[in-house]
Structure formats: structure tokens, C-alpha cells
Design a protein around this nucleic acid. Structure first.
Lengths: 148, 148
DNA sequence: GATAGTTGTAATATATCACGTTACAGCATT
DNA sequence: AATGCTGTAACGTGATATATTACAACTATC
């Protein structure tokens, strides 16, 4: 399994919104051209970012504006915004019908739950350490590095 | 998205193999009854564990024997054994066609790759800290705790 | 050594989900 | 008023996870 590409698409979009912020007509079609997906995908991802309070948009009007400075938007914020993992059930899909008439089946869930949560937490804590400023800075540096 | 239930099924199976090790007829049907899935699923999961060198089995003969002590089998070992995440592409599904004619599209991948790997690594390191002995101990303790 | 039990694995079915695509109402811009 | 854009619904499609049937090859037991 893999975490949905909506996550990397969202990071790509925010990076592009910053990079092209002084250019006009940064609409969903333009962004879709950069990301390489359908414009509807871009609009739905931006919709999720808006719901999460990360960007502001105006219906009928091009583009989107970041709601916070880049260094205050973390990978974790985006990961939550685009529903990367099931909110209710968590990162791990537990088999759904362990047999309650078996002592192991009856107790394995509670023996594992805390540890599965710890693993997911370790991942999420690492995501909180990474900001969009990090990615934008590195992207810009890579672009400058191309010119030789 | 979620990590396949084959992971928790594998942990359940190993726990049951230990718990019921002195009982005969611990075949795939018995295990399937405890886990709550089809016996063929049990046999394929055990097959993955065998390929990874975690258990020994004998074709035509019931059950499986652990190849290592429980405290030397980590969640990470099982996670790798059952192919929980795509080996080649990693935990994150990167959108596949960023536009190479766009400076952002051309550079976003390398600006993100190292950070995505760090997140996956944080998760995997946490998995290496948890052993099957931990889960088996807690499961047995929970079973004993029931008796009152 | 014949019989019954079991594994390993292929083949097929089904459900779910990610992503693509079309369509269009409603709002903004000119 | 005309044009462009967003937000969102609806539907299509391919990939994947899990279930299920079937059976050859092997083991255990009598």
C-alpha cells in the first residue's frame, strides 16, 4: 500500500502557488499542467487545503492564497488536510473478525493497539518537523542550480 | 489508505503459534478460526513468513515452528515479510507525471524525496523497537487477567 | 503401503478505492 | 453582457485487497 498521491500533489501545489505568486492566471488548469494531473484533482485538493484553513480561495476567481507563512505549514498539516490515512481506524488495518471464543483472538487487539498507535505517532511526529519552507527553499535552490 | 491487514494477521498467527505450541492440529484451518479469515489467507501469510526466514514449515504437515526466539522477531521483520508497503516506491505514492517543462515540476521530486524517506524511516525505526515477545507477553497477561 | 489430513499455489471472483473525466451551476472579472 | 474560473456532483476505470474454490504434492497414521 501507499499513501495517496494527493499528499505530494498538495505539496507540489503549495510550492507552485508560492513560486508563481506574482504571475497571473495561476488557475487550476495551469497548476494541473505543472503537476501532471486533471484540473479537477487540483481543485479538489485545494478544496481540502481550504477546509483545513491552509489556503484562502475565492470561487470564480483564479488561484489561491496561502493562509499562513510557509514555515508554519508542516507536512503533518497537509497530511491531515488531504485525509492521507483513515481518521477513525488509523494507519494499520486490523483484521476485522478475530474470534472472541479464542483467548488469543479475544485479546490480541488490545495487546497491539497501543504499539500500532506508537508507530503511527512516530511517523506523524517526523512529519511535524518538516515545513513547506524547507521544500520551497530546496526547490528554488535546485532551480537556481540548473542554470549553468 | 491503510497498511494491509496481512500485517496484523501475521502477528496474530505468530502469537497463536506460540500460545498453542503444545497442542496438536494447529493447522491453517484452526488458525483461520482464531484470526477470522479464510485458511488460504493463513497459508499465504505463513508462506511469506517462511520466505523471510521467520518460521519453518513442512509441506503436508500441520503448523509452523518459529525460526527465532520471540524477542528476536520485530514488527519490522513482519512488516517486511508480508510486503506491507511497496518495496520499490516506498510509503508515499508520488504523483507520476510532474511536468519537466515547469521549473517546479522538474525539481519538486528531489526536494521531497529525502524528507519522505526520513518519515518512512521514523516509522520503521519504531517498528524495530517492538518485538513479538512484547505482544505475546501482553496477550498472555490479558488472558490471565480475564479469570476473575 | 493405503488412507486421510495438510500444505502450497494457481485461478477466479468480488468489493473497495484512487484517480480520471465530463458536466454544469454559480460567482468573478473585464 | 460576455467570458473565465471555481466547486462539486456523477460516472467511469483500473488497481488492489481479500475471499473462495480447486487440486497436486507431501506427511502422518494405521
Amino acid at each position: 500500500m501507499q499513501i495517496t498521491s494527493r499528499f505530494t500533489i498538495a505539496v507540489h501545489i503549495i510550492t507552485a502557488l508560492d513560486y508563481f505568486k506574482d504571475r497571473d492566471r495561476v488557475n487550476s488548469e495551469f497548476l494541473a499542467g505543472s503537476v501532471g494531473v486533471n484540473p479537477v484533482i487540483v481543485r479538489t485538493v485545494i478544496g481540502k487545503l481550504r477546509e483545513a484553513g491552509l489556503v484562502h480561495t475565492l470561487k470564480g476567481s483564479s488561484g489561491a492564497e496561502l493562509a499562513k507563512p510557509l514555515d508554519q505549514i508542516t507536512f503533518y498539516d497537509i497530511y491531515k488536510a488531504v485525509d492521507s490515512v483513515n481518521e477513525d481506524e488509523g494507519l494499520f488495518h486490523f483484521h476485522e473478525q478475530p474470534n472472541t471464543e479464542c483467548p488469543v483472538g479475544r485479546n490480541i487487539h488490545k495487546a497491539m493497539d497501543g504499539r500500532l498507535a506508537a508507530i503511527q505517532n512516530a511517523m506523524e511526529e517526523e512529519m511535524k518537523r518538516i515545513t513547506l519552507a524547507d521544500v520551497v527553499d530546496d526547490t528554488k535552490a535546485a532551480i537556481l542550480g540548473e542554470e549553468k
